[in-house]
Nucleic acid binder design. Sequence first.
DNA 1: GAGAATTTGTACGTATGTATG
DNA 2: ACATACATACGTACAAATTCT
Lengths: 84, 84
Amino acid sequence: MQVDRFDPTPLYQQVARAIREQIQSGSLKPRDPIPSESELVADHGVARETARRAVALLREEGWVVTLPQRGTFVADRPGRTGGS
Amino acid sequence: MQVDRFDPTPLYQQVARAIREQIQSGSLKPRDPIPSESELVADHGVARETARRAVALLREEGWVVTLPQRGTFVADRPGRTGGS
DNA sequence: GAGAATTTGTACGTATGTATG
DNA sequence: ACATACATACGTACAAATTCT
């Protein structure tokens, strides 16, 4: 799904929202891999940096966990930071 | 102070460390502005993206606070995230 | 073990937008 | 109007670790 370039919402937030909704709806389940950066670039029509920011945002929000050189996966308890 | 390109430590971490040490040593005090992105680029000989990452890291660590379109400043209680 | 492909990490350069002074 | 400063976005390149053939 391409982003909407007329929507003033930053593209990386649009991409993040699309993934977040897939997690919330259950089409992406805990421990499932989310699309790789390259796939996000192709699927959404954005630059890699934009895709990376989207994933970074989801990571900060606790939706996903990234394993370097492995991939990024849906967290066991998505949406929870795990912090104190 | 230029970064050390033979040091395997990522450049953005080297820049962040340099700023962090200035805060810890007291040469940068709470509410002082830290150098702008352009100044970090000039001072350390790195790209803007690298300077931005350094600042982002310090922000995550609680050393600085960024006020959009204002600048980035040393936190009131540097090194504390303010979280629970 | 060798080699290619994949995936994330780091880094540089550039451009435009938005808000402030 | 102009300069400053951060935010977003695109493109490119190479490194490092893992995975697959």
